[in-house]
Design a protein around this nucleic acid. Structure first.
Lengths: 193, 193
DNA sequence: TTGCAATTAGATAGATCAGTCTAATTGATT
DNA sequence: AATCAATTAGACTGATCTATCTAATTGCAA
């Protein structure tokens, strides 16, 4: 038998390429070359490029959600501090990659949203799973008095996610770190009681 | 002589199509068909599709900036109210189109950001011109005491733009009106002294 | 050693798309 | 009526990309 490939490794490589260059600007040739597999193997794992794209989206969503859960469920800090620290880590990550990466869900939504409903649904369910991690943490902070009760937990979760997503858009458009700094500053003000 | 075409009409149609379906999902065939011109005419006006794309971006940027200026310079209301009303109008516009449209700058940044630096620069300069309309209005509000001084005017302008952009992303990903409502609510809280 | 299933390289088909080119047409001008 | 520049339709080319197919290779198992 030849090398038994790990499907996750291919998905991870696709995630990287799509985040850097977008869906249409990443060919299947580039994917298989970068993943170190053969064309036949790729089409053995995935029905077609769209199927691969959807699976990459869900892989990214689960991967991100798990990471967020890990950071937001650590009860050593209060909920507000956990949120702030989590975004600090994310910002650090983007900085480390010289602001070249983007959020896959944002990119895919923009690029394929109106074209293929399977992509819209995938983006939507993964954004929802982000919100479903934020919201309980915010609610916990509202109950223990560390986070503002000016808005419902879900609305606040949506606003935080919006602000973060929007900062990533401006970051990628060439403003680099400035919108991330503004986001970090505003996040603290926004959560404050 | 045949019909003398208006370059602006072609740019406007391109803007519509790119906002709905993205850059790669809009072919030159669709553009010329929708704009009602011939292939030859298109390539008489524009060097190639990329040249067209850049000109559409700047057209969108100038068009949006002019509209914002008009709304934010109307001295009948205080600066805070002008900002709130402006975004209310924008939100109403997206609602009217059933949340199918997106912001062209966001889409182009995501789709072509890392690929073609001319696109990145165009997105960047147009986002900057948005900020250069927001900032003086916010500064004016900070001086007359209607807008919070917790953040510098530019940082606040960036945050507002981020939050708005992020809400548009979630809107297009299928959440429709909910992120827009959350944005409108948070905007008021954020600007409040 | 032999057989076999998985994997590979790479050719190839088929579709799509950008951009060029040509011949015909239009309509204002002289 | 004749001219001519602008415009048009649409064929065509070449490039690119997805997806299929084939023949060769690998390496485990019998």
């Amino acid at each position: 038998m030849n090398i038994k490939h790990n499907k996750e490794d291919i998905l991870r490589k696709g995630m990287e390429l799509f985040r850097l260059n977008g869906y249409h600007n990443t060919g299947t040739n580039e994917i298989i070359k970068e993943a170190g597999i053969s064309r036949g193997s790729f089409y053995n794992f995935f029905k077609d490029k769209d199927d691969f794209g959807i699976q990459v989206l869900d892989f990214y969503g689960v991967w991100s959600t798990d990471y967020m859960k890990q950071l937001l469920n650590d009860k050593k800090l209060n909920p507000k501090q956990r949120l702030i620290n989590m975004f600090d880590e994310f910002v650090e990550g983007y900085k480390k990659e010289n602001y070249k990466w983007g959020c896959l869900l944002i990119g895919m939504t923009q690029e394929l949203g109106q074209i293929n409903s399977a992509f819209t649904e995938a983006c939507n369910r993964n954004f929802e799973s982000f919100l479903n991690v934020f919201e309980p943490c915010i609610k916990e902070g509202q109950q223990d008095g560390t986070i503002s009760k000016n808005e419902e937990a879900r609305a606040l979760a949506i606003t935080v996610l919006s602000m973060y997503n929007g900062a990533l858009v401006l970051m990628k458009s060439g403003l680099h770190h400035e919108p991330l700094t503004a986001f970090q500053g505003q996040l603290k003000l926004m959560l404050a009681v």
